[in-house]
Design a protein around this nucleic acid. Structure first.
Length: 287
DNA sequence: CGGTGAAAATGATCACCCAC
DNA sequence: GTGGGTGATCATTTTCACCG
């Protein structure tokens, strides 16, 4: 398998990390910096996927007809068991989670990948900004077995000479408010247990991305119910933020999107979180 | 040894096809 | 219309045997 072209191997690595990717997403991940014409990029990626399928390394998942907000339905691609062995992916070690359980995991994985792309898009072409770390759920879970809560992804973003640390939660609107409140409670447990200090320099922002704006508001209110119950959580509450995917994908990008936070100033820019979460000061709610 | 040029591999583009 | 796919063709890059 060492004969695989460079781009094919890069594609395998991305698929290994993200679990599911659409062709469009893979194209952006692999060729965003290239000078290829738009039409050529799609053909290049189609051929990469074709070669990988012919070698039995990649499989096609059924097309999603509902798609993401503003994004038409797309076919998703993922590694076969053989493909995972070739990459030596930690994903291969996972039990149960590697398999596709209906369309839900697939759609969810595509959404998480899309959120990651929003940040990469934002950093592109800016000399002083970059995505330093983007770990998907299984990578976050590695070596952090004691955590009460595991995010869908973890982000470290370099900006203005500082580092923004964030947990990413992707919400497709399929969970009830009570289920989500439980998730917030688990993040509280994680925070108060102190288990996160072993693996993180600061307590990160918890960024929940929804498909629609009303849903973002709904989840924010739901989290308020959990966080507002105890006074000592007031500072921690500021680290929970909510925005709709369309805003992240829009002109303003993730840093211009409206992120709802608790407190009197209920709407903030993500940039406001940078100063606090720079990895050099105490977390906003330490002590 | 380095330089050269033909052959081979890979990359890029266009023009189509089909399914929904 | 959009998305997914293939074949033909031309361009570019890499490889490699051969030469002085």
């Amino acid at each position: 398998m060492s004969a695989l072209p460079l781009r094919d191997r890069a594609a395998l690595a991305e698929l290994s990390a993200q679990r599911f990717l659409s062709r469009r997403q893979l194209e952006e991940l692999l060729l965003a910096e290239s000078t290829l014409a738009a039409g050529s990029r799609t053909t290049v990626v189609k051929r990469i996927l074709r070669r990988l399928r012919e070698r039995g390394l990649v499989q096609v998942s059924p097309r999603l007809f509902e798609g993401l907000d503003g994004i038409p339905g797309e076919t998703a691609y993922s590694l076969t068991p053989v493909g995972r062995r070739v990459v030596g992916s930690g994903l291969a070690e996972q039990r149960g989670r590697g398999a596709v359980r209906g369309n839900f995991l697939l759609a969810h994985a595509l959404m998480v990948a899309e959120i990651g792309l929003c940040f990469r898009r934002c950093a592109r072409g800016k000399a002083d900004e970059s995505v330093l770390i983007w770990e998907s759920d299984w990578q976050v879970a590695e070596g952090r077995s004691g955590w009460a809560a595991l995010p869908d992804a973890r982000l470290v973003y370099a900006i203005e000479g500082r580092q923004l640390h964030a947990f990413i939660e992707a919400d497709r609107g399929t969970e009830g408010a009570r289920f989500f409140a439980g998730k917030i409670a688990r993040y509280l447990d994680l925070y108060h247990s102190g288990a996160w200090r072993g693996g993180l320099p600061v307590w990160p922002l918890v960024l929940t991305v929804t498909l629609t704006e009303p849903r973002a508001r709904e989840l924010w209110r739901s989290s308020e119910g959990v966080l507002g119950a105890r006074a000592e959580n007031a500072a921690l509450a500021r680290t929970f933020r909510f925005a709709a995917l369309a805003e992240l994908r829009g002109e303003a990008g993730p840093f211009g999107a409206i992120w709802r936070v608790s407190g009197t100033d209920s709407v903030r820019r993500l940039r406001d979180g940078v100063a606090r979460n720079d990895g050099t000061t105490d977390p906003p709610c330490a002590g």
